[in-house]
Design a protein around this nucleic acid. Structure first.
Lengths: 115, 115
DNA sequence: CTCTTATATGAATAGTTGTTCATATGTTCA
DNA sequence: TGAACATATGAACAACTATTCATATAAGAG
């Protein structure tokens, strides 16, 4: 179907197709953005911009269920966006990546540049 | 609960809480990243880096269902990530924002810097 | 006017995901 | 050793989302 547009010859389509990153790369990239695509996780990241914080601190700050926070922290950890440091009973989390802040800021800029 | 960490006094928690962006802002930001957090949409965006392309062209390139592509294009359009230009029977889509490319590239860098 | 082509859209469905509840693990302190 | 606390985790459920199918709209060609 859709033999469509003479402007997009098979050659051009083939050319662009070859220039595209692999399925796997694009999948991983999407997975990464998916991590940032949740209110709770963005809030956690935003909190951790201010420095490391223990789970209980995050729970208090965001006034959310401890279990919910723990689950999201595990997801962020798996994605290597945060890392945990155990100290006695507590676990202190902090950002594990220096790109996150830039990406976050650029996202903010994008979302709020238009009034 | 979680009276926890003496290191995180109520004052500090309150201080950080006040420094956080509003709920609404963080929600919108998460919504934006959610748009990038899907394989199909990332692929579409990736294709459109090469220039505008009609729906049929995208369908051919990605070898996907036309309906699926149309649905995702509508979502991307609502999020103001792409825009459409009608020309006869065809609709040509292109990126609607200059931040996207940088965010995309930074995401790629993040995902693939670690071997 | 009718047929074909390009795109859009609604409904249905299957798969995914976030939260909650209950409970487990592990650590400190008495 | 046992109680109290901080965090993690599994199961269940509700909400959301991407895809597909069927069909609608809209435009050009004959």
């Amino acid at each position: 179907m859709t033999i469509c547009c003479e402007t997009h010859e098979k050659d051009e389509v083939e050319l662009i197709r070859n220039a595209l990153p692999s399925e796997d790369h694009l999948f991983e990239l999407a997975e990464f953005f998916k991590m940032l695509g949740d209110s709770t996780r963005i809030k956690i990241i935003c909190v951790l911009f201010h420095g490391e914080m223990c789970v209980g601190g995050i729970v208090d700050l965001l006034e959310m269920n401890q279990s919910a926070i723990s689950h999201q922290l595990r997801i962020l950890k798996q994605a290597r966006i945060v890392k945990g440091r155990k100290e006695g009973k507590q676990v202190f989390y902090s950002l594990d990546d220096h790109h996150i802040k830039m990406i976050y800021e650029m996202g903010m800029e994008h979302v709020f540049e238009r009034i």
